[in-house]
Design a protein around this nucleic acid. Structure first.
Length: 273
DNA sequence: TTGTGTTTTATTGCCTCC
DNA sequence: GGAGGCAATAAAACACAA
């Protein structure tokens, strides 16, 4: 067996890392070794006693991963709620408090942010979809109302013409011919599903511009720049960064988006031609 | 028990910022 | 150039149905 160096902090609940030749705990010293190699070199021990327990040592072969204890996770979660990014000082403090390596704390936060982002995307998708459905049904009812009014105008016009002798028009009143069709409202050209897709076409999520948005906690969804005509539809986007908590269900960036739609009011989804 | 799907922990490579 | 962030991914741990 190859020789290993230990990194062990007795003050830290006994959590310890094996550091192989290519110590990958510190980013600066990252080596190019593959996953198999690294995992063989970096076992975990849950307690200081385990370190000296030969049976445990034999059973817990070097590649075993150890899960954090519920207490550790709880504290990390609480800390994440306060602030979802780690300053070096806070990282060190947390690591000491939890008996973990600072790197482990950093990794936990990294993964936690990723999980939060996924959940946030799901919530935003649900919210946008229901808003979209609401707008669609609103649009349908407006179309029906428009048809009704058109029929009424035709009927009244006919009645008026029947009253007037042929060839005469009422003084001071000239009826404009009705347009063939009501002004059209273009349907959104991009399906929500497409925009939100994380598949190969879902570049909206990962491209350069959007990356900044993700980093700053802003919207994944189209902005006024992208759809300048759809002012009202996107006007309510809340650009404030969420506090990162999962507890505030629906604490979306988009809590105000489409609020008008939810109130069943026609909103400026499109500009009438 | 075992096969399978999901979650969690950790690494790697690339990018951005200072 | 180093530090830190993110996406993608691996692999262990876990959950659960059959």
């Amino acid at each position: 067996m190859e020789s290993r160096s230990f990194f062990f902090d007795p003050s830290c609940n006994g959590n310890m890392l094996f550091l192989g030749n290519g110590d990958s705990v510190f980013r600066g010293g990252r080596s190019m070794m593959n996953m198999e190699e690294t995992s063989k070199r970096r076992p975990f021990f849950s307690t200081q006693e385990d370190l000296y327990d030969e049976e445990y040592y034999d059973e817990q072969s070097p590649e075993k991963k150890r899960r954090l204890t519920p207490e550790q996770v709880h504290l990390l979660e609480k800390s994440f709620e306060v602030e979802n990014k780690l300053e070096p000082d806070r990282k060190t403090q947390l690591a000491k408090k939890l008996g973990l390596q600072p790197r482990q704390v950093a990794v936990w936060f990294q993964n936690r942010r990723a999980r939060w982002k996924t959940k946030q995307l799901e919530r935003d998708y649900d919210q946008l979809k229901s808003s979209y459905d609401s707008i669609l049904s609103n649009y349908d009812s407006i179309l029906k109302e428009n048809d009704k009014l058109k029929a009424e105008v035709i009927s009244l016009t006919e009645k008026l013409q029947a009253k007037e002798p042929a060839g005469e028009e009422p003084a001071g009143q000239k009826l404009e011919p009705l347009p063939e069709d009501p002004p059209t409202c273009p349907q959104p050209t991009v399906k929500l599903e497409d925009r939100l897709s994380t598949g190969s076409d879902g570049s909206a999520v990962v491209d350069e511009d959007c990356r900044q948005l993700l980093d700053s906690g802003d919207s994944y969804f189209p902005t006024n720049n992208e759809y300048p005509d759809c002012v009202a539809a996107f006007d309510g986007v809340n650009s404030e960064e969420d506090d990162g908590s999962d507890d505030n269900n629906g604490g979306s960036y988009f809590s105000d988006v489409f609020s008008a739609a939810e109130q069943q009011e026609p909103i400026g989804w499109c500009i009438w031609n």
